[in-house]
Simulated scan of single mutants.
Amino acid sequence: MYKDIERISSLISSRICHDMVSPVGAIRNGLELLEMSGVKPSLELDLINQSAQNANARLSYLRVAFGDAGGSSKFSQQEITAIIGAYFENKRVRVNWQVTTDQPRSVVKTLLLLIMCFETGLPYGGEILVRTADSTWAITGSDDRTAFDTPHWDAMITGQDFELSSATVHFELARAAMSLNDINPEWGKTSGALRMQFQTNAA
């Protein structure tokens, strides 16, 4: 019997996202065919098209963040920025990805989960800055109105357990990803920002 529950969960997430991408893509293709056939633009078609785009962006992001990070494959810089850009296109939070090199899948998975955590800490919007120098990474979330003092953030910083929900499950997944990659972050908090720094040996 396969006993690695975390691996099974990630594979299930990968499968769900993979299977949902095709029908969402079919909806977008169908809309394009309608436009080519001469159907006049309308608010209804715009709404359907925007919803399909948003769904595709979320699936692409969650497929990496929640999915299986096994293997030695890498994401190109273009792939990473496309996934992040599409996911945050219509959100109040901006992600400033200041990384110019390709990255291992396991590192990208961890970073996308951490970005989701920082997004939760910026309920009114703000900026998430991601930078790296060699093997040292720094993520900073900033805004005048932050929520980095909630129980799940306290648990993330201290390592204590907290009550999970569907809205905060990415915190536990981020902790598991960091543990798997031997990441021990350092934290710095001010009244309007939270910064974490860590090193990774992934190549």
Rank of each mutant, 00 (worst) to 15 (best):
Met1Val: 15
Tyr2His: 15
Ile5Lys: 10
Arg7His: 12
Ile8Glu: 08
Ile8Leu: 09
Ile8Asp: 08
Ser9Ile: 11
Ser10Trp: 15
Leu11Glu: 12
Leu11Ile: 13
Ile12Cys: 07
Ile12Ser: 06
Ser13Met: 09
Ser14Arg: 05
Asp19Ser: 10
Asp19Gly: 09
Gly25Thr: 07
Ile27Gly: 08
Arg28Phe: 12
Asn29Lys: 14
Asn29Ser: 14
Ser37Val: 07
Gly38Asn: 01
Gly38Gln: 02
Val39Ile: 14
Ser42Asp: 03
Ser42Cys: 02
Leu43His: 14
Leu45Val: 07
Leu47Ile: 08
Ile48His: 11
Asn49Arg: 15
Gln50Gly: 15
Ala55Thr: 12
Ala57Gly: 02
Ser60Val: 10
Tyr61Trp: 06
Tyr61Met: 06
Leu62Ala: 14
Leu62Cys: 14
Arg63Ala: 15
Val64Cys: 05
Val64Phe: 02
Phe66Tyr: 15
Phe66Gly: 11
Gly67Lys: 03
Asp68Cys: 09
Gly71Glu: 01
Ser72Phe: 06
Ser73His: 06
Lys74Leu: 14
Lys74Ser: 14
Phe75Gly: 01
Ser76Lys: 00
Ile80Leu: 00
Ile84Met: 03
Ile84Gly: 05
Ile84Tyr: 01
Gly85Cys: 00
Gly85Ala: 01
Ala86Pro: 01
Asn90Met: 09
Val93Lys: 04
Arg94Ile: 14
Val95Leu: 05
Val95Asn: 05
Asn96Met: 12
Trp97Thr: 00
Gln98Cys: 13
Gln103Trp: 00
Ser106Tyr: 08
Val107Leu: 09
Leu111Phe: 04
Cys117Ser: 00
Cys117Leu: 04
Phe118Cys: 01
Phe118Leu: 05
Glu119Ser: 05
Thr120Trp: 02
Tyr124Glu: 15
Leu129Ser: 11
Val130Asp: 04
Thr132Arg: 12
Ala133Thr: 14
Asp134Ser: 10
Asp144Ile: 10
Arg145Lys: 07
Arg145Pro: 07
Ala147Lys: 02
Thr150Glu: 02
Asp154His: 12
Ala155Arg: 00
Ala155Lys: 03
Ile157Val: 04
Thr158Cys: 10
Thr158Pro: 03
Gln160Phe: 15
Asp161Arg: 13
Asp161Cys: 08
Glu163Tyr: 14
Ala167Ser: 14
Thr168Pro: 04
Glu172Ser: 15
Glu172Trp: 07
Ala174Val: 03
Ala174Met: 03
Ala176Asp: 07
Leu180Lys: 11
Leu180Tyr: 11
Asp182Gln: 09
Ile183Glu: 01
Thr190Leu: 01
Ser191Gly: 10
Gly192Ile: 10
Gly192Glu: 09
Gly192His: 07
Ala193Lys: 01
Ala193Arg: 02
Ala193Ile: 01
Gln199Val: 13
Thr200His: 05
Ala202Asn: 11
Ala203Tyr: 09
Ala203Asp: 14
